[in-house]
Each structure stands twice: as structure tokens, then as C-alpha cells.
């Protein structure tokens, strides 16, 4: 049905398109600005002459970044913790969500066991007691401090077990009748049918591990063991942190290499941008799985 637009409607459409376009640009311009700075000369960047296009184009900052040992080390720590972390998280998640998706008849005590996990969504010991337990179990200064304490995520379990429940019971019953074990049922029926949910959770978890910086900061005592985001925090944020007055702060801002920081920010962000197009397909459905269940 085609309806002729009145002048008011036309004005609205123009204003609306313009507004939303500006809003969308506002979301990506800061990243483009950093990209421009990272490819500009130090002098141009500190003089504030760089907008959205590099001034005095140079790749010096990137050359410096990839030669810097700590930066490479941090990058590798992050890759390792992401690969290990996501693998372990997913394995434990599947093993937990599957039994909990059963009824109380198939798994006596299911409800009680579920509560063990649900409670962790609402109460926690908080920063210091967690820190003491992680230290007490000797994870400090190992990569496991970045992985083990966060393996079980009750929220992910809820999402996956609700997904498992939508799978028709008949499939399992016929497999069991043919003598399939529970492991077999999980691997051959439930997992192949849950790929969309698993893909979503994998993506969320990967981004989570990639972006996580706090545990690196409190559990690692030397910079060489820092994951990338913790390392970045150290060079970008921390220099400002202890300074007391404005003149010192301004001085610091001048001597610290603006272009070099920008280059490292870009390198740390590119992997997220690289998977972003693939993510988009999944995170929307993932968010709906999470928020409109029940």
C-alpha cells in the first residue's frame, strides 16, 4: 500500500534519518580518530592536528609496538587464556547444563542442584574473599587464575539448559531404546541440535575473555604475565592515576607517546572487529535467549 507523504511526514523522515546517521557515526568516529592518530606522526598528534585522517602518515607506532617484548607477551597471554578459557568454559557448561535440563524423575535432586548454581547469580563473597581463595588455591601468577575462578557461569547454564529443554524428548527416548548411553545422547543428539546456542555462548565467552583485565591486574605480580587488556590499562590509564595536580598531568600527557598508545589500542581492538560481522548474526538471538526465557 503506497501512501503519499505529507510535508510533515517528509520533514520527519529527513530529520529522523539525519539524527540516526549522526548517532551511528558518533559510535564509530572515536575509533576512526584513534586509527588516524595511530598512523600519524607524534608531533602532529600531540599538537592536536589529527582529526579523522592521518597527518604525516607513518607506521612507526606499529613497528614500535610489534617490537616491544611486553606487548607481544601480553598479546600471547590473552590468546592463550582465551583459547584455554573458552574451551574449558564450554566443556564444563555443556556437562552441567545437560543433566540439569532433565526432569526430577530422570535425575533425582535436580532442583536442589540447580539452586546451588542459581544462588551464585545473586550472592557472592566479593572481591577480597575471592582474592583470598584464589591465592589459597595457589593460582596466583599462573594463567589458571584468569580461567578457573570464572569457569562456571550460572547465567550461561540457564541459557543452555533452556535450549536443551526445547529439544523433543522423543529423540532421546528412541536413542536410549537402541541402547545409547547418556554421553552418546548428549554428543549425538543434543550437541548437534544446539549449535546456534553454543555458537552464541562461545562468542560471548570469547569476547569476555578477550576484554577481561581485572583478574590479570590483581592476580599477576609481574607485568610480563599480564593479559593484553591489563597491560594496556597499565600504559594508558595507570600513568594518570597517581598524579595529583593538573600541571603534572598535562606534562605526562605530552611526554607519553600518544600515537604509540593509539596503535596498541587499535591492535587490541582489531580482533574483536574481525569477528564482529560473524558475531552480529548470533548475539541478537543470544540476547533474546537470555532475556525472554521462562
Amino acid at each position: 500500500m503506497k501512501i503519499r507523504l505529507s510535508t510533515g511526514e517528509k520533514t520527519f523522515a529527513i530529520v529522523n534519518y539525519t539524527f540516526l546517521t549522526l548517532l551511528a557515526l558518533l559510535c564509530i568516529l572515536p575509533f576512526l580518530h584513534m586509527l588516524a592518530i595511530s598512523f600519524s606522526s607524534s608531533a602532529a598528534a600531540t599538537a592536536g592536528r589529527v582529526g579523522l585522517w592521518p597527518v604525516d602518515f607513518t607506521t612507526a607506532s606499529y613497528q614500535y609496538a610489534i617490537q616491544k617484548r611486553e606487548f607481544i607477551a601480553a598479546f600471547l597471554v590473552t590468546i592463550r587464556r582465551t583459547l584455554l578459557g573458552v574451551t574449558i568454559d564450554l566443556a564444563v557448561l555443556i556437562l552441567t547444563a545437560y543433566p540439569l535440563s532433565k526432569s526430577n524423575r530422570e535425575l533425582p535432586g535436580r532442583t536442589a542442584i540447580s539452586w546451588i548454581f542459581v544462588i551464585t547469580m545473586f550472592v557472592s563473597g566479593g572481591l577480597i574473599p575471592t582474592y583470598l581463595v584464589v591465592s589459597g588455591t595457589h593460582l596466583k601468577n599462573t594463567i589458571w587464575a584468569l580461567i578457573i575462578p570464572g569457569v562456571v557461569k550460572a547465567y550461561y547454564i540457564t541459557i543452555l539448559l533452556n535450549f536443551f529443554r526445547q529439544i523433543p524428548k522423543e529423540l532421546e527416548e528412541s536413542a536410549v531404546m537402541d541402547g545409547a548411553s547418556q554421553i552418546r545422547v548428549l554428543l549425538s543428539i543434543y550437541l548437534p541440535l544446539s549449535l546456534p546456542a553454543l555458537a552464541t555462548l562461545t562468542i560471548f565467552d570469547t569476547v569476555g575473555h578477550w576484554n577481561e583485565w581485572f583478574s590479570g591486574m590483581i592476580y599477576m605480580s609481574s607485568q610480563i604475565k599480564y593479559p593484553l587488556q591489563t597491560f594496556l590499562r597499565g600504559i594508558i590509564v595507570a600513568p594518570n592515576y597517581d598524579l595529583m595536580d593538573r600541571t603534572q598531568m598535562e606534562l605526562m600527557a605530552k611526554i607519553s607517546s600518544k600515537t604509540f598508545q593509539a596503535a596498541q589500542i587499535i591492535i587490541a581492538t582489531v580482533p574483536i572487529l574481525a569477528v564482529y560481522p560473524f558475531m552480529q548474526k548470533y548475539f541478537i538471538s543470544g540476547m533474546m535467549l537470555g532475556s525472554l526465557k521462562g
Binding site: I116, F117, T120, V123, S124, G125, G126, I128, P129, T130, L132, V133, V134, T137, I148, P149, V152
Partner: peptide
């Protein structure tokens, strides 16, 4: 969960 969620709670 017993170690890393309930442990800190006890803590």
C-alpha cells in the same frame, strides 16, 4: 562452584 563461589561466601 564449591571452591570459588561458596568458598568466598564462607570467607
Amino acid at each position: 562452584v564449591a571452591v570459588y563461589s561458596y568458598g568466598p561466601l564462607a570467607g
